[in-house]
Write a protein that binds this DNA or RNA. Structure first.
Lengths: 396, 396
DNA sequence: AGACCATAATCTAAGGTCCGAAAGAAGTCA
DNA sequence: TGACTTCTTTCGGACCTTAGATTATGGTCT
């Protein structure tokens, strides 16, 4: 329909350069020859292009490998020190800031506790900005080396330079987090929903690795998720797609904190499960309380698994993924013991054709991957078709 | 992640050529100058490219338009007689075959009644093949001019040369419709779910026109649908995505004909609505019976609207579309009177941010658009990046 | 050791693509 | 008729990728 698409011959090069970089980043060290085979580009093109990339210091040599009686291959890899990305996790109880190199090794961390009830936007922004400066200092990185800051927040993020955040759990109605941060730093900023950043982390480095169509469910205190389509996060027209927590599973059912009835999140986050079981626990105790419930074999747990199966079934029919990853601390706790039940509950509601039980797996990165995922937002443009070493300034 | 992407400099041209063709096809007649502005290509490129296209007879001149004191614009348009596409609608009661030119004008039709209960695959295939020959003869088109045959069927179609069809309503377990048809014709074949073909028709020519992210719901005897993402039908990993009918809306609810519980289709198609109202009607009478129910103001209708709202709400949160089109004969019947209620029911379950009530609209093509949509499957590759006048032989 | 083989990386010539600028074409207006 | 406007085509140049030849770097065989 539309009229977008490539144009000139230089876009071609940018695209091929990005493709090469992706192959190198996700496929590990490789020789020029292997890259040629893998990308389909001619050896000549790979040679000139890697020459450029080496000159730009984006990639570096990484040893040699003998070949049966021929010239040894020179391995290449992405230069982890080419640049650094800051990832921020704005959570219920704390703001977590981490500095990563391109290989996603942590170089420095900073945490700031937030008193449970109060999530003053100004304060959160100040914590983030302080944290960014702190990790850059601690990591001993020149500011010019930092490629950007990615921030994972709860709720829905409206795209645009203001990055308006709506998060009921924080009492944020339309907080212009992007604008608040922009006032304090010149670094490129990327703000997105924390469930999505975590999903991207699982996609790139965790259980979603290698898939192009996946669903990553994040079950913590609440329920969030990420839909991956064709290797990228599905965002929809207004960038608000993939709100898995508000998939309806019981028409006219329990009231969700979003105000609607019958949402998955009204039944399935730790908060909802405990509430349904009649257990009173504030957010600090949720983990222990849920563990106890699981230990006791509460019938609410069984129901929860059934309901999760219903929700997953809907997702399978709508998205036809090749893998479903269950993450988040509560998801891992449930799934760790009851994965087989979850698979069975899903299968019971799903036609065999698009679904195999083994496609449901647990997340591998643990619940702390939000910051990691946020940092990937910074790096992602490098693997897209954007002009290269020039930094990105949009807030997505 | 993956390693797909453009390669050579000729792909560039193919892509730009396709873009130009899309602009011309969906944007109506346009001058070279306008095309240049619209596509972003330079005037020089547009000129040479349109030269090629004219030489290939893919486009033709379409009159002139004066310009204030300058050389008049020569309008160009896609040549409707460049080729023809056959669209087939395999329905409950009949097999409908139609021949279209590139502008989607019908050149010939053929219908074959199918006795309600019996849907013998061999017979259906024979009807299709006979129909294809008949419309080609009646339309007075040289067989070489026919670009392919698109077929819309109920159920899930497995991609591949056999095009295995699973359709409970027909009692088709794994009917290799592609193979059956391949035996009788050498034309390129495209087999897909009828709700998807109809969705593509609404997307290209109906109420979905101009949108890039939409959901087209088809409510007839059952419920089907199409999810459009970024201008294309969302198909997922195994091409089985978008099965809107099996979205669950009531955990543990009514048994659906698919075997699971609580599917949208267990509540919402004409069949389900009548069943819930306790009305007995066979498929020929459904339309009148549903109209009567609507006339009487049966409470089941109100409940149906509520449940539709719940389902749409899930879809909005998951896909964040910019438009929702309600089609299918039953959908149009309900929506014709109760659109406002449907919008309200959806809004009640949906957060305001991604949803505006006006995004729910009725289909414009009527219930007979399945064949039209099937024919678009044949034409679609021409607007993609596939090599040009060479025909496509895959079954999608 | 030296000749020969195998594999990797680079160089060179050729074929394509798009663009900008300038020229050409086809009207209008005075 | 000549100046002006607008649309379209032509031409030269900058880039990109490819195929094939060439150079680099090691092993193997006699």
């Amino acid at each position: 329909m539309g009229t977008s698409g490539r144009r000139t011959v230089r876009d071609l090069r940018r695209g091929n350069r990005a493709m090469l970089l992706r192959a190198l980043y996700f496929g590990g060290p490789a020789s020029r020859n292997e890259l040629s085979a893998e990308t389909g580009l001619s050896a000549a093109t790979v040679s000139t292009m890697t020459g450029d990339l080496l000159a730009d210091n984006v990639i570096v040599e990484a040893g040699q490998v003998d070949s049966d009686g021929g010239r040894p291959r020179v391995l290449l890899k992405v230069n982890p020190a080419f640049g650094y990305a800051v990832g921020v996790d704005v959570g219920e109880t704390q703001v977590k800031v981490e500095l990563f190199d391109l290989e996603m090794n942590v170089r420095a961390r900073a945490h700031y506790a937030v008193r449970s009830a109060k999530h003053d936007p100004e304060l959160v922004a100040r914590h983030i900005l302080t944290g960014v400066d702190a990790v850059i200092a601690e990591g001993e990185v020149a500011p010019g080396q930092v490629l950007g800051v990615g921030v994972g927040v709860p709720g829905i993020v409206e795209p645009g330079p203001d990055a308006l955040v709506r998060a009921k759990t924080f009492g944020w109605e339309a907080v212009p987090l992007g604008a608040l941060l922009r006032a304090g730093t010149a670094l490129p900023l990327f703000v997105d929903n924390g469930a999505k950043t975590m999903g991207q982390a699982e996609l790139w480095f965790g259980s979603g690795r290698g898939t192009r169509d996946a669903i990553i469910l994040l079950v913590g205190s609440g329920v969030g998720g990420t839909v991956v389509s064709d290797g990228r996060i599905y965002r929809g027209a207004g960038k608000a797609a993939g709100e898995v927590g508000h998939l309806k599973i019981v028409a006219g059912g329990r009231v969700c904190r979003c105000g609607a009835r019958g949402c998955l999140e009204a039944y399935l986050g730790a908060e909802a499960i405990l509430d349904r079981a009649g257990v009173v626990a504030d957010s600090a105790d949720e983990e222990a309380a849920l563990a106890r419930l699981l230990e006791e074999g509460s019938p609410v747990i069984g129901e929860s698994v059934e309901l999760l199966g219903v929700g997953l079934s809907s997702l399978v029919h709508l998205f036809n993924p090749e893998r479903i990853v269950i993450g988040g601390w509560a998801g891992l706790m449930l799934g760790g013991r009851l994965l087989a039940d979850i698979r069975a509950a899903t299968a019971a509601n799903t036609q065999a054709q698009p679904f195999q039980p083994e496609m449901v797996v647990l997340g591998r990165l643990g619940p702390d991957a939000v910051a990691l995922g946020a940092a990937t937002l910074v790096i992602e443009p490098f693997f897209g078709d954007a002009a290269f070493p020039e930094a990105v300034t949009t807030i997505a």
